[in-house]
């Protein structure tokens, strides 16, 4: 992420987030509802804008395209993960070979690391146990390799290359 975003852009980001959630919960276009929502969102955004690290910089069109791409890669991996678990659970011999592997990530932003850890948990055969600085510790239901480099290529690479483009 290049430079720190201005307070205004952080505030607008928080405001939009709260307002969209408000609208989704009320789902009405009446003026009274919208104005109440705007006031509540503005007050909440005033208290919480310091927490939105990226501000509006996240909304460049290119990044939005990557976000959509990430969503589809993630959805595909989630369905594949479930079929994988289903296959293991149903087969009578219970084909598992569990272990914990480690690998290094190139991501620097804390939020991006959180997204990557969550994605790894929901993808085939892996659950993130811990993240310490830039090391990921992953419980793998069927360990194919113990080498950190190859484990990284197998577990994290498809997600991380998109996250690197979004969060830098």
């Amino acid at each position: 992420m290049s430079g720190k975003p201005s307070a205004i852009s952080q505030w607008v980001y928080a405001f939009l987030l709260f307002f969209v959630v408000w609208y989704a919960f009320t789902t009405s276009l009446e003026w009274a509802e919208l104005i109440t929502g705007a006031i509540v969102a503005a007050i909440l955004a005033f208290f919480t804008y310091k927490m939105s690290k990226g501000g509006m910089t996240i909304y460049s069109p290119l990044k939005l395209i990557y976000l959509v791409q990430y969503f589809f890669v993630f959805l595909f991996a989630l369905i594949k993960a479930n079929l994988d678990v289903a296959k293991r659970v149903i087969s009578p011999s219970l084909p598992i070979n569990p272990g914990i592997v480690e690998f290094k990530t190139q991501l620097t932003s804390e939020f991006a690391k959180m997204v990557l850890a969550n994605s790894i948990t929901l993808t085939p055969g892996t659950v993130t146990i811990d993240v310490i600085d830039d090391m990921f510790y992953v419980h793998w239901i069927d360990v194919e390799t113990e080498d950190p480099e190859q484990a990284y290529m197998k577990v994290a690479e498809p997600f991380e290359k998109i996250l690197l483009k979004i969060y830098g």
Binding site: A81, V85, R88, V89, I96, P98
Partner: peptide
């Protein structure tokens, strides 16, 4: 299938695997 996985898996971490993924989707 997630419930079946929790029943069949040998230890806590593998149960976590089956439980998390299947219950999420």
């Amino acid at each position: 299938l997630g419930a079946l996985g929790i029943f069949r898996m040998p230890d806590f971490y593998n149960r976590l695997q089956a439980g998390t993924k299947a219950s999420t989707l």
